[in-house]
Design a protein around this nucleic acid. Structure first.
Lengths: 193, 193
DNA sequence: CTGCGCATGTAAAAAGTTACATGATTGG
DNA sequence: CCAATCATGTAACTTTTTACATGCGCAG
């Protein structure tokens, strides 16, 4: 069901073709909230059109169809937004990997986590640049830019991860220091790759 | 594939039955990283056992079987942990809803977002209590408690959300103040298409 | 005139959800 | 002895992924 409302939501912001929607998913939505392939998007658009929730408003080159949300679609989207959200389930392979670090030997977990931290920091900085650009364009008339909210969310999300990772690294180091006191195990804090 | 490694990871921390693993998923993993129903877990455990990655180490009342990870399982888990993570896709209906707020009229988006903020703050505070308790028990000998890492992650995650939501609320308020200056519109985002 | 990106689809397989189903044990 | 919880499973359905498939239009 969520795919349906993700599409309605994107079309509520701005009309677009299946191709364009596929790109909008890949652009920001998939990183924080939802992902869909084009092979899922096209059939769903046809279903939505069949249900009268969206309409073809233009046809372009190469058989492209631009869809826009209909009034019925806006109503359906609103209903969904006002309906109680179901159990908050999050699915992220990346975070799963992070949690599974605790199954590894501390030095290895430490090394991998440093890598994750570095990557998150890079992502954060990339988005910060985008934010800076958006902020400079400063189109005050624009109606509550979706992208601006998403980008800010991303920056804060990655930043929280970076800080958590630093905390976790320190904790692993502390643990290793304590564990290594008596018996000398192979475990030095980081075998610098 | 991820389910398989989530199970291997949980069993690498501690042996358990399908029932116990179902609970461990529900306890913390599902909130941040991965969810699975028992109807998915039992068949996957049987497959893992068939592949020799886990073994039955005990049988208890009511036909319960306690599984433990095998050496082959540890190898498989390690391989996975060292393999390059695939595109970071996150799936969260809650976050999808948050992003879709920008399709609503600002006053309504504002109201809903305040609710989301309050709930996130509650979640954060709940986990903080758990953290406080874990911290007081302070079992220094325990081998890098998985739960402690997850809880800290949760606190920071929710906290980042709360702060983002506050930022977003302020931005919505600013937008409304600006938009409301001249004409008192009844804000239907676009009556014109 | 060719390769790349635009643009849309279908089919098969895998993963995940929901519902159905059964029975044992334990605490009150 | 009754209800709740432990404990495991299957079946049907939905959703998602991966692979296959086709063809247009534009820039170099």
């Amino acid at each position: 069901m969520s795919l349906r409302f993700a599409l309605l939501g994107l079309l509520a912001v701005e009309p677009g073709s299946g191709y364009a929607l596929t790109q909008r998913f890949a652009q920001s939505l998939e990183k924080y909230a939802w992902h869909a392939n084009h092979s899922q998007i096209y059939p769903e658009l046809n279903k939505l059109a069949g249900d009268g929730l969206i309409e073809v408003v233009a046809e372009g080159a190469r058989g492209s169809r631009t869809y826009a949300i209909s009034d019925a679609g806006r109503d359906a989207l609103l209903d969904w937004m006002l309906s109680p959200p179901r159990e908050s389930r999050v699915r992220s392979e990346q975070i799963l990997r992070v949690f599974m670090l605790s199954t590894l030997e501390p030095p290895l977990a430490h090394d991998l986590l440093r890598g994750y931290l570095a990557q998150a920091a890079r992502h954060r900085d990339e988005i910060r640049e985008i934010v800076a650009q958006l902020e400079s364009e400063e189109d005050a008339s624009s109606p509550m830019q979706f992208g601006r909210f998403a980008a800010e969310f991303g920056v804060r999300q990655y930043d929280a991860f970076v800080e958590w990772a630093q905390w976790a690294l320190a904790r692993i180091e502390r643990y290793q220091a304590e564990a290594g006191q008596g018996s000398e195990r192979g475990n030095r804090p980081s075998t610098t790759q």
